[in-house]
Write a protein that binds this DNA or RNA. Structure first.
Lengths: 198, 198
DNA sequence: GTCTATACAAAGATAGAC
DNA sequence: GTCTATCTTTGTATAGAC
């Protein structure tokens, strides 16, 4: 038999999975414990409380998302493709995990009107990563002043894709649609001239 | 003193307000009762359970949103402006109410992984209203085949605006940005020729 | 580090009276 | 239709042992 990972890992796995598929508020600690095959005391010894566990699980997930997205950027050819790699990354990220109901970070944010500082920071880190990486990639395409705006537009469209999944849309359909709209936004900044390059 | 509205109304008001600002799962029934100045028994007599109350409150809110949006469509001049009136409607709707954290319907959907039939129907009714009205308005602008696609794109962008509010963006900024992107989507369907009419 | 058993608090819902 | 009082269940967290 494969040796079981330590209780801490099992807790993080269970918490991440359940948060993504069922939501946090509606998932009692008992269910997480049951899934992880861990006793209550162990959870509180490691993470202090439920929110601490969730926070830690989200941090780990954000790191994975960061990696997946960066890989997709690196594989993309042109600066425009690198900017739009966000959408391929979303596809790939979802395929590599138990499919979440929409987006764990937005989901937890929606469920948690008054998060503690650590959780709030972790949730903000998702938006920050989007902002910074997209601004960086946009700088290769448009003037500095426009880069911030273009990044914001793409975050909006990306967030729209996630929201469509919550509305019940097919993931691949919504992603493809988002990518198409994002391409429009890019081209409205770069000018129509270069829009038909390979 | 102004005569107090009946308990049923006070419950709906309180539930709507609290659902919009704090979320449903994290708002205990007691808090709704306290805000409405109503006893528990009255709530259960009228609505059966908490979800019944929330469902009814959402139905009422959807009807108001429907009205506000239709007004904005009627006030708009060109077919393109009518299609984009969705974004002015969002502004107006929010200004007419206690500002919700983002969107009550998406919020409740996010918080409720397994809604009962009635609640599920009410949540779906929001997306359905968007779909049908936008498809109707799009038909005035583009061919029938494209109308469905354009409507979907605008729902995606609109949903993105709402998601940006959850991410902490300024409401008016996000709305204006969404409207601009939606205009791009419209013009990519109608062709660049007519894009500069008054 | 991890377990068993349990304390403590909160939340949803109902009984019975007026 | 509405109230007071209360029951039941569920959920978070801890005590103390190994």
């Amino acid at each position: 038999m494969a040796p079981q990972p330590p209780a801490r890992e099992r807790l993080l796995d269970a918490a991440e999975d359940l948060a993504a598929t069922q939501g946090v508020t509606t998932t009692p600690v008992d269910v997480i414990l049951d899934r992880a095959q861990v006793s209550p005391a162990t959870l509180y010894a490691h993470f202090g409380n439920k929110e601490g566990l969730i926070t830690e699980a989200l941090r780990r997930r954000l790191a994975r998302w960061d990696t997946t997205w960066q890989e997709c950027v690196d594989e993309a050819g042109t600066p425009e493709e690198k900017l739009l790699a966000l959408f391929s990354a979303l596809s790939r990220h979802r395929r590599s995990l138990t499919p979440s109901r929409w987006c764990v970070f937005l989901g937890v944010a929606a469920e948690t009107p008054r998060p503690g500082q650590d959780l709030a920071d972790t949730l903000a880190a998702d938006t920050d990563l989007l902002t910074h990486r997209l601004e960086g990639l946009a700088t290769a395409l448009v003037e500095d002043g426009q880069a911030r705006m273009l990044a914001r537009q793409i975050i909006l469209i990306y967030t729209g894709v996630l929201g469509m999944i919550l509305r019940g849309a097919e993931v691949e359909t919504a992603t493809a649609e988002g990518r198409r709209i994002a391409a429009l936004a890019v081209r409205s900044c770069t000018g129509p001239s270069e829009s038909h390059l390979p």
